[in-house]
Design a protein around this nucleic acid. Structure first.
Length: 505
DNA sequence: CGTGTCACG
DNA sequence: ACGTACGTGACACGG
C-alpha cells in the first residue's frame, strides 16, 4: 500500500493498494497478498517473513532482527510493492474495473479504519453474568447426558457421541463421513433423532448451543474488550471473500448471535455509551431484490413496488393460492425455496431443508420455474457466462471468478455452478452496501450530525449516535442507503434504535 | 493441525 | 453412481 504519511506516519488513506487493485480485478481467483502477487506478476518470490524472524520457538519480534537483514527485508517489500503497482495499476482501466476500485474499494479504506478505531462498547459485567448462568446450565445438561448413557463421557467429543448413538445404542441414521469414517452428529442428525424421541439428542443439542455461546462469545468476547476504552475493535478484511463481501476477525463481529433467546442475551451486551443509542439500518430482502432486478421477473418486481410480503407472494404464485389462503406453512416453504434459488439449490438440497421427498421438491422447483420463467433463463445465462469467461458479473460490473467451473471433477464443477449463480446476488448486495458506506459518513457530517458508523454485517450498518440525533440520523442513513443504486425495484431499509444492539432490531 | 461443528448474513 | 444450497471465522477435540 502506497500512502501519504499522516497521523504519525500511520497509513490511513492509501494513494493506491496493490491488494485492492488485484481484488477489484480478480476476486475469487487467488489470494491478493504481496507475496502471492509477486510470484504471479513479477516471477519473484519475496524473502519470507519467517526467514527473517525465525520460525517456531526461535521466532523473535521484528525489532530484534539484525539491522542488515531487517533492511533487506523492508527494502524488498517497498521495491516489490512499487513494481507490482507498475504492473497492476494500468490494467484496471483495460479490465473495466477502474471505477469499482477508485470509487468504491479505495474509498472504503479510511471508512473501515474509522470503524475499527471506534470499536463498539461491550458490557463485560453483563457477559460475566451470562457466563455464570450458562455454566450452571451446562453442568446440569452434562450430568443429564451422562445419566442417559449410564456412564461419563465427553459431551463435546463428536467421535465419542457418534459411537454411543450408533454403535452402543444401535440407533439408525448414522452417516459416516467420507474422509475420517466418523459418524456425523451435526445438528441436522441430532434434530432427526430428537424428533424420534431420543432424549440424549435433545440434551446434547442444548449443551452444544450453550457451550458454543459460552466459549466463543461470552469468553471470547470478554477477552477482546480493550481495557483502555471498554470497547471491542474488530479487524475488517477487504480482500478475503470471493464475492466482494467484507470479513471480520479477532473478533468476528459479523456472526454475533441473535436467533435464539440465549443468543439475544449476548447481543444485548453490545451497548451504546451513556446518552447515546445504537442505530441499526438493514437492507430488506436485498438479494431477492437483486434477483427480481437481474432476472427481470415481472411478478417479483411488481410485488416489491407494492411493498408486498415477498415470500407470501411467492407462495401464492407457486402453490396457486389466493393471497388470503397462504398459511404459515406455505409461506415457510416459499421462503425456503426463495433462499434456495439464490443459493443455486438442487432438488435434493431443497428436499433436505423442507423434510420432504426429492420428487416432491422437484415438483415445487418446476412450479417455481413455470411461474417465473425469467429466473430459469437468467440462471442458465449466468452458468454459460461462467463457462465461457471463467467469471460472472454483478449488476454493477464486478467480476467474480469461479475457477472450478472448468473442473474435471463433476462434484467440484457442480459446486462452482452454484457459486456462480449465487455470486451476482451476494456480490451485488456487497457493492450496494459499500457504496452506502462511503457516502453515509460524509452525509452525516454535512448534516451536522455526530454519530459514528461502527459495524457492517453484510446487509446491515450499525451506528452509535447521541439520543437527540437518533431520528435525524435515521433519516439521513435511510436516504443514502436507499438511494445508492437505481434498480427495477426499490431498495428498502429498516431502521431501529435502542440501548443495545438487540434492542435496535 | 485437520476435522467437525456452529455462530452469522 | 455420486453428493447435494452460497459466503464467512472461531472453538474444541484428538492424533
Amino acid at each position: 500500500m502506497l500512502c501519504r504519511a499522516e497521523n504519525g506516519g500511520i497509513a490511513v488513506a492509501p494513494i493506491d493498494d496493490t491488494m485492492l487493485i488485484s481484488y477489484a480485478m480478480e476476486a475469487g481467483r487467488r489470494g491478493h497478498g504481496m507475496d502471492e502477487l509477486a510470484v504471479e506478476h513479477l516471477a519473484h518470490r519475496p524473502i519470507a517473513f519467517d526467514q527473517v524472524t525465525g520460525t517456531g520457538r526461535a521466532r523473535i519480534t521484528f525489532d530484534r532482527v539484525a539491522l542488515d537483514k531487517a533492511t533487506e527485508y523492508a527494502a524488498e517489500d517497498a521495491d516489490v510493492t512499487l513494481r507490482l503497482w507498475g504492473v497492476l495499476k494500468p490494467r484496471l482501466r483495460t479490465d473495466g474495473s477502474l471505477a469499482l476500485y477508485e470509487q468504491v474499494e479505495r474509498r472504503m479504506v479510511p471508512v473501515l479504519r474509522d470503524m475499527e478505531l471506534a470499536g463498539i462498547r461491550v458490557d463485560g459485567a453483563e457477559l460475566a453474568r451470562i457466563g455464570e448462568d450458562f455454566s450452571g446450565r451446562l453442568v446440569v445438561l452434562e450430568k443429564q447426558a451422562h445419566d442417559l448413557v449410564g456412564r461419563p463421557f465427553n459431551v463435546g467429543s463428536p467421535k465419542q457421541l457418534g459411537e454411543i448413538l450408533f454403535d452402543e445404542m444401535g440407533l439408525k441414521g448414522g452417516r459416516r463421513s467420507k474422509l475420517s469414517g466418523a459418524y456425523s452428529t451435526d445438528a441436522a442428525v441430532l434434530e432427526e433423532l430428537a424428533a424420534q424421541g431420543v432424549e440424549l439428542a435433545r440434551t446434547v443439542l442444548d449443551w452444544r448451543q450453550l457451550a458454543k455461546l459460552k466459549s466463543t462469545y461470552v469468553e471470547g468476547l470478554a477477552a477482546a474488550i480493550d481495557p483502555r476504552d471498554g470497547r471491542v475493535h474488530t479487524d475488517f478484511a477487504m480482500a478475503v471473500t470471493s464475492t466482494g463481501r467484507l470479513s471480520s476477525t479477532e473478533p468476528n463481529l459479523q456472526n454475533i448471535p441473535i436467533r435464539t433467546e440465549e443468543g439475544a442475551r449476548i447481543r444485548r451486551a453490545f451497548v451504546a455509551e451513556p446518552g447515546n443509542v445504537l442505530l441499526a439500518a438493514d437492507y430488506s430482502q436485498i438479494e431477492l431484490r437483486l434477483l427480481a432486478h437481474m432476472a427481470e421477473v415481472p411478478a417479483l418486481v411488481e410485488a416489491f413496488h407494492r411493498g408486498q410480503d415477498i415470500h407470501a407472494r411467492t407462495a401464492a404464485d407457486i402453490f396457486r393460492l389466493a393471497p388470503e389462503a397462504v398459511d404459515r406453512e406455505a409461506r415457510r416453504r416459499a421462503k425456503t425455496i426463495n433462499f434456495g434459488i439464490i443459493y443455486g439449490m438442487s432438488a435434493f438440497g431443497l428436499a433436505a431443508r423442507l423434510g420432504i421427498p426429492p420428487g416432491e421438491a422437484r415438483g415445487i422447483i418446476d412450479a417455481y420455474f413455470t411461474q417465473y420463467p425469467g429466473i430459469r433463463d437468467s440462471m442458465e445465462r449466468v452458468k454459460e457466462e461462467a463457462r465461457t469467461h471463467g467469471f460472472v458479473r454483478t449488476a454493477f460490473g464486478r467480476k467474480i471468478w469461479v475457477p472450478d467451473i472448468a473442473a474435471k471433477d463433476a462434484v467440484r464443477r457442480a459446486g462452482a455452478e452454484r457459486a456462480a449463480i449465487n455470486a451476482p446476488f451476494q456480490g451485488g448486495a456487497a457493492e450496494v452496501i459499500k457504496r452506502a458506506m462511503v457516502r453515509v459518513p460524509l452525509a452525516l457530517r454535512d448534516a451536522g450530525l455526530t454519530g459514528r458508523m461502527l459495524l457492517q454485517v453484510h446487509d446491515e450498518l450499525v451506528f452509535e449516535v447521541p439520543e437527540a440525533e437518533a431520528e435525524a440520523t435515521g433519516a439521513v442513513v435511510r436516504r443514502i442507503m436507499e438511494g445508492v443504486a437505481t434498480l427495477r425495484v426499490p431498495l428498502a431499509v429498516e431502521i431501529g434504535t435502542g440501548r443495545s444492539w438487540a434492542d435496535a432490531h
